[in-house]
């Protein structure tokens, strides 16, 4: 098993936090993982993305062109990486901010209104955790409880943020569970 994930969005949407938490959780699950943040002389409000590879054997390249999964938090990042998804790969799309439809064929598309859901149940800043919940529920790549523990550990000195993040995570998970874990092109939640 080797799985490549790209998480992309605006700086400030918690892209790097999400990537790191997945890496921590994978390590906790005795899997191999790499996390590589895109860095550069970035502009505020510019795009931010990170690559996460999870595997059960030694990981070669931490950066991939061909992606099994993409979590896209905004339109520019979606447009930039759309065709890096492999056939039968999965898109997790923050449909609150991404209003364009997926052109890539042979893709599982999960439209999650993450920003709106986050605002309703917790805090707009936890939209990333709504996406994480949906991602874990749909892919089952990591155990839900281990990811939840990891979120709790990550914010060990910020209990309020841990609480909000876990509420958002559960909400994302619930969105997918409602559909029996299946995604399809025209599925929108909410």
């Amino acid at each position: 098993m080797e799985n490549s994930l790209l998480i992309a969005g605006f700086g400030g949407q918690g892209i790097m936090t999400l990537g790191q938490i997945i890496g921590y959780a994978a390590t906790k699950s005795h899997l191999k993982a790499t996390y590589y943040p895109s860095y550069g002389a970035e502009q505020r409000g510019g795009t931010a993305n990170c690559a996460v590879v999870i595997a059960d054997q030694e990981i070669g390249s931490p950066v991939r062109n061909k992606l099994n999964h993409i979590i896209a938090m905004n339109e520019p990042s979606f447009k930039r990486f759309e065709y890096n998804l492999i056939d039968q790969g999965s898109f997790f799309i923050n449909s609150s901010l991404i209003k364009i439809t997926v052109k890539k064929e042979k893709a599982n598309v999960y439209n999650i209104a993450a920003s709106e859901l986050a605002m309703d149940i917790a805090n707009i800043h936890s939209a990333n955790f709504v996406m994480l919940g949906a991602y874990i529920a749909a892919t089952k790549i990591l155990d839900k409880n281990i990811v939840a523990e990891t979120i709790d550990d990550y914010f060990t000195h910020k209990k309020e943020i841990a609480k909000i993040s876990l509420i958002a995570f559960d909400e994302g998970f619930r969105q997918i569970s409602k559909l029996g874990g299946k995604g399809c092109h025209d599925t929108t939640f909410k």
Binding site: G23, T27, K32, A33, T34, Y35, Y39, P62, V63
Partner: peptide
């Protein structure tokens, strides 16, 4: 190099 420095791994 910059990849080894910036990446995270167990």
């Amino acid at each position: 190099d910059g990849v080894i420095g910036a990446m995270m791994e167990a």
